[in-house]
C-alpha cells in the first residue's frame, strides 16, 4: 500500500528542510558574530544602563515592570545596541528556522500519508520527528522571549541529527510490524518525542550555562549569551515541562506493553532506559532543591539525563537485544 510518490515527496521536503536549516544556522552564526564587537564597544562605554533604553517608553507601574524579553537581554543590552547587520541576519535566520520547521512537518506528514500510518515507526522516523519537535520547541519558545542567541546551538545539532537519520538510519517507507499496530504507538511515541524535543533544548541551554560557568562570561561567544541565572532558569523551565511528559511516556508505554507483550513491565532494555532517564531527571529536580548542592552540580545531572536519552536512541535501539524490535534496520 506504499505510495512511492508521496514517499519521494517526503524525502524531497526533508532535503529542502535541511538546506533551509543550514542557511538558518549560518544566519544565527552571523548574528552572534555581529553581536560580539557590539558587546565589546558597550563594555568600554559602560555608563549607559540598559534598563533606561529598554523601558524608555513606560516606567509607570501600570505597563510592564520587568518584561520577559527584558530579562533575557538584561546582560546583552537592548536591540538598539545590536548592529543592524546582526539583527537582519537573525531575522532571516528566524524566518528560515520557521520555514525549515514547516518543511520538516510536511516531510513527516507526507511520509505518514505514504504509508497510511503514524510516521513514527523506525529509527529514521524518530530522528526526523525528534528534529521536528526540537525545532517546534525552539520556534514556539522564541515567540515568547528573545532566543536569537540560542539559534546556532539548536539548529546545528538538529542538522547533525537529520544528517544521521538520512544516512545511517535511513529506512524505506513501509508498513509496521504487527506488534506496532496500536493507538498506543501514536500516543506513547509521539509524547516521548515531544519531550525529547523539550529536553534537547533544555540540554543545549544547560551546556551553555555550564560552559559560561566554567570559562567565564567574557570568553568568545559566551559573551553573547544571557547571564548565568537566566540560563539556569530557562534550563529548569524546559525540564519541568518535559519531565511530566516523560512520566506520561513511561505510563503509556507500560499500558501498551501490557497490550502487546502481556505484562506492563518486562525490564526490557528499552524500558530499563526509559526508567533510568526518568530517575535521572527526577534526581535533577531533587538536586536543584537539595541543600549543599550547587545549581551547577544539579545541572550536570540534567546533562547526564540527556546523555541517557542519546544512549537510549542511538545505542539501545541498535545493539541491545530486546523486544523493542523497531529500529527498522
Amino acid at each position: 500500500m506504499t505510495n512511492e510518490t508521496l514517499a519521494s515527496y517526503a524525502n524531497l521536503s526533508l532535503y529542502s528542510a535541511m538546506a533551509v536549516l543550514t542557511l538558518s544556522m549560518l544566519g544565527y552564526a552571523g548574528y552572534l558574530a555581529g553581536l560580539l564587537p557590539a558587546r565589546d564597544a558597550r563594555a568600554e562605554s559602560a555608563d549607559a544602563p540598559d534598563r533606561e533604553l529598554v523601558s524608555a517608553g513606560g516606567g509607570s507601574a501600570g505597563d510592564g515592570g520587568p518584561s520577559r524579553a527584558d530579562a533575557v537581554t538584561a546582560r546583552g543590552g537592548s536591540d538598539a545596541q545590536v548592529p543592524l547587520r546582526a539583527r537582519k541576519a537573525a531575522g532571516v535566520a528566524h524566518t528560515l528556522a520557521l520555514l525549515g520547521t514547516v518543511l520538516l512537518f510536511a516531510s513527516a506528514a507526507l511520509r505518514g500519508a505514504s504509508v497510511q500510518r503514524w510516521p513514527l515507526g523506525n529509527m529514521f522516523e524518530f530522528g526526523v520527528a525528534a528534529a521536528l519537535f526540537t525545532m517546534v520547541v525552539f520556534v514556539a519558545y522564541g515567540l515568547r522571549r528573545d532566543l536569537r542567541w540560542l539559534g546556532l546551538f539548536v539548529v546545528a545539532p538538529v542538522l547533525i541529527l537529520l544528517g544521521l537519520a538520512n544516512t545511517v538510519w535511513y529506512t524505506e517507507a513501509a508498513e509496521l510490524m504487527p506488534s506496532l499496530k496500536s493507538v498506543w504507538l501514536v500516543i506513547h511515541v509521539t509524547v516521548a518525542t515531544i519531550s525529547v524535543g523539550l529536553f534537547a533544548v533544555g540540554f543545549v541551554i544547560a551546556l551553555l550555562y555550564l560552559a559560561q560557568d566554567r570559562f567565564g562570561t567574557e570568553r568568545g561567544v559566551l559573551r553573547a549569551l544571557p547571564d548565568g541565572k537566566t540560563l539556569e532558569r530557562l534550563t529548569y523551565g524546559l525540564h519541568i515541562i518535559a519531565f511530566p511528559l516523560w512520566t506520561f511516556t513511561l505510563i503509556a508505554g507500560a499500558i501498551w506493553a501490557r497490550q502487546a507483550w502481556g505484562s506492563y513491565w518486562n525490564w526490557d532494555p528499552k524500558e530499563v532506559w526509559t526508567f533510568i532517564i526518568w530517575v535521572v531527571y527526577a534526581a535533577y529536580l531533587h538536586a536543584r532543591v537539595t541543600r549543599g548542592w550547587r545549581r551547577q552540580s544539579a545541572t550536570w545531572v540534567a546533562v547526564a539525563g540527556f546523555v541517557c536519552i542519546i544512549v537510549n536512541y542511538a545505542v539501545v535501539n541498535m545493539y541491545f537485544v530486546g523486544q523493542h524490535s523497531y529500529s527498522g534496520l
Partner: peptide, 19 residues
Amino acid sequence: MRTALFLLLLVAVAALPGS
C-alpha cells in the same frame, strides 16, 4: 533529601547492568 538524591542516582546506575 541528600540521601534520597543519592539513592535515586544509585537506582539509575544499578538498573544499568540489566540492560
